[in-house]
């Protein structure tokens, strides 16, 4: 945390100093403290209060009217960790999050490497690879639903043409997961690409020139020069991706609905279902606390080990 030096005037002029001490913005602070009130009130009502309520709800059994019926201690937590659907949800969420994050970064790195090398039409390629940045999860999901639609989707048409047996990927557990990972990597590509492009510009061109003379392949250069040089950015991106992907909701809701057989029922979606379809607030709240713990740990790592994180998200 940085703090500015208190303003001091290095001037012998006594008159000026007197004026200053009377009007010092920094010390004349009582009135300006009210500036914090609007944000604090909103955070209290819509962040801290709900977090406390969620913790309390997670310790109660919910009755049919959605009220806290009786205190059950940690029983809800015991129950969710005995629930095969939640365990599956947790495991599949972790798998999805890590595969997606790693793939996004690898693909974005390769694209950024291709674009930073001296080429004509650089601006065009940069725009093309960054283009997915503004696309919402909902629009992306609709585009992928269309591509993989079992009757009209182009991917399916292609699969049929090459003689694949299973063409409706949405009904197979790995197929549904595959579509979610693919759409997610695609969506996240623009952001990762732009960040890596920025980082790559800090790697001196001469390193590559030497490697070129030594006869290193592109892969070798990327692996031995680029990756070590930009490792802070890679780590930052990895943590940011993980935090974002853990909250994946939209794509699940629109593309798979958590299916087939709960295979893509990721944690955020499971919480939503238990809360707003089953109205079991106790169970949903304890699941929400598990999600919070995971996100809080990842965010803490982000704050702790990546200096940019606090400022660039």
């Amino acid at each position: 945390m940085q703090s500015r030096k208190t303003a001091t005037l290095h001037t012998p002029n006594i008159k000026l100093t007197a004026v200053k001490s009377k009007l010092n913005l920094r010390q004349n602070s009582k009135s300006a403290l009210w500036f914090l009130a609007p944000s604090l009130i909103i955070l209290l009502i819509f962040t801290f209060y709900p977090m406390v309520v969620t913790v309390i709800n997670s310790l109660f059994a919910t009755n049919v009217r959605g009220e806290n019926a009786r205190f059950v201690g940690l029983a809800n937590y015991v129950q969710i960790f005995k629930d095969p659907v939640f365990i599956k949800s947790l495991g599949h969420t972790f798998a999805y999050v890590f595969i997606t994050s790693i793939l996004t970064i690898i693909v974005a790195l390769l694209l950024a490497r291709l674009v930073t090398q001296r080429i004509k039409g650089q601006a065009f390629f940069r725009t093309a690879f960054a283009s997915t940045m503004g696309i919402s999860a909902a629009v992306a999901s609709i585009l992928f639903l269309f591509l993989f639609n079992p009757s009209v989707g182009l991917v399916v048409t292609f699969l049929k043409a090459i003689g694949a047996k299973q063409t409706n990927l949405l009904v197979s557990p790995t197929g549904a997961m595959f579509i979610l990972i693919l759409s997610s990597v695609w969506m996240g590509l623009g952001f990762a690409f732009l960040n890596l492009l920025g980082a790559l510009q800090s790697v001196p061109e001469s390193y590559y020139e030497v490697a070129e003379i030594a006869g290193w392949s592109n892969w070798m250069q990327t692996w031995k020069i680029t990756v070590p040089m930009i490792s802070p950015t890679l780590f930052f991106l990895f943590v940011v991706e993980i935090i974002g992907k853990f909250k994946t909701f939209t794509a699940v809701d629109l593309i798979t609905g958590g299916g087939p057989d709960n295979n893509t029922n990721f944690v955020a979606y499971k919480i939503y279902q238990d809360a707003f379809a089953s109205h079991n607030f106790g169970i949903a709240s304890s699941e929400a606390i598990v999600l919070t713990i995971v996100i809080a740990i990842a965010t803490w790592i982000q704050f702790r080990y990546t200096e940019r994180s606090v400022f660039y998200k």
């Binding site: 819509f46 962040t47 709900p50 977090m51 309520v53 969620t54 709800n57 853990f246 909250k247 909701f249 955020a268 919480i271 939503y272 809360a275 607030f281 949903a284 709240s285 929400a288 606390i289 999600l291 919070t292 996100i295 809080a296 965010t299 803490w300």
Partner: peptide, 9 residues
């Protein structure tokens, strides 16, 4: 550090 998804109820 607190996900909005955990505060929706």
């Amino acid at each position: 550090m607190l996900p909005f998804e955990a505060q929706i109820i």
